Amino acid sequence: MAWFKRNKEGITTSTSEKKETPEGLWYKCPKCKVITAVEDHQANLWVCANCNYHEKINAKEYFKILFDNGEFTELDPNMRSVDPLNFVDTKKYSDRLAEAIKKVKVNEAVTTGVGKLNGRDIVIAAMNFNFIGGSMGSVVGEKIARAMKYGIEHRVPVMTISKSGGARMMEAAYSLMQMAKTAAMIARMREAGIPYISLLTDPTTGGVTASFAMLGDINIAEPGALIGFAGPRVVKETIGKDLPEGFQTSEFLLEHGFIDFIVERKNIREKVDFFLQCVM
């Protein structure tokens, strides 16, 4: 009858030497669900080696990819948004800004810098999506406009990397004015003969799409990026019809002439350098 009784000897397991799996060692692709080592994923430029899904990355990562040796000088690093309307939704806008700065460790939803790409000077403005959804407020528009002004004054090509949910609602008309501001600076660059490259990544929507993101001398996109003004759900509800398969993906936009070509992240440097060789 020993099997009815619990034998306390030999069944206790010590947990003092149990090894916990450290966090951050593995990456699970949100598209194909394949798990890979984070180190390998980063070495592949944050692109899934199994399905080619391009993971969202911020300015810091793009600058490592594009600038020679990852070296650059940041422009206007200390500019921060304020709360001109004392906006309150679920929380104060000023509190949300403070939380984003602390969490993301950048001061705004865009980082601008000047450096070299294959030995050629270039200004790059790249958006940080995890800073309030990469939304465009007054400081985002001002930093991009100043980056373009720098390009004009120093005769340096300008590149923007868009990843945004659109205009920042907490700043109302202040944010919408940035669409006109950035578009006006692009017109000035064209008059001065300064090349402007726009790279659209996942997602690029709203007022960013309706302004500087689609006004490049050449508009390129990463594979599978969602690009549009309003989201697919809003469009479907507005027109009351089903949308075509792949609607608002970069592949759909390429087929319909909205962008010039699609480029994988590993080939961005080569493609941008080739374009600049052709125009400068």
Rank of each mutant, 00 (worst) to 15 (best):
N219R: 14
M169L: 06
V140D: 03
L226K: 13
A184W: 13
E171Y: 01
A172V: 12
A184C: 10
G137D: 03
I194E: 00
R146M: 13
Y196E: 07
G137M: 00
S175M: 03
A172F: 05
A147M: 02
L226F: 11
T182N: 12
Q178L: 04
K143C: 00
A187E: 12
G206T: 10
A172W: 09
L199W: 05
S164M: 08
T204Q: 00
S198T: 15
S198R: 10
T204M: 01
I197Q: 03
L176N: 13
A221S: 08
P203F: 11
V139I: 15
G165C: 04
K143A: 01
E222W: 04
M159D: 12
R155P: 08
L200R: 15
A183E: 02
F131K: 01
T201Q: 02
T209W: 14
M177V: 03
P157F: 12
G151F: 09
M170W: 13
I152M: 06
I152N: 11
G206F: 06
A145H: 03
M185T: 13
P223M: 07
A210E: 11
T160G: 14
I227P: 08
P157T: 03
A180Y: 14
G224E: 12
G193R: 08
L199Q: 01
L215G: 00
R188N: 15
N219H: 07
D202H: 14
I161P: 05
Q178T: 15
E153R: 07
V208I: 06
E153L: 07
M169Y: 11
S138Y: 14
M148I: 03
A172M: 06
A221F: 03
A184G: 06
L176A: 09
A221W: 01
G133M: 02
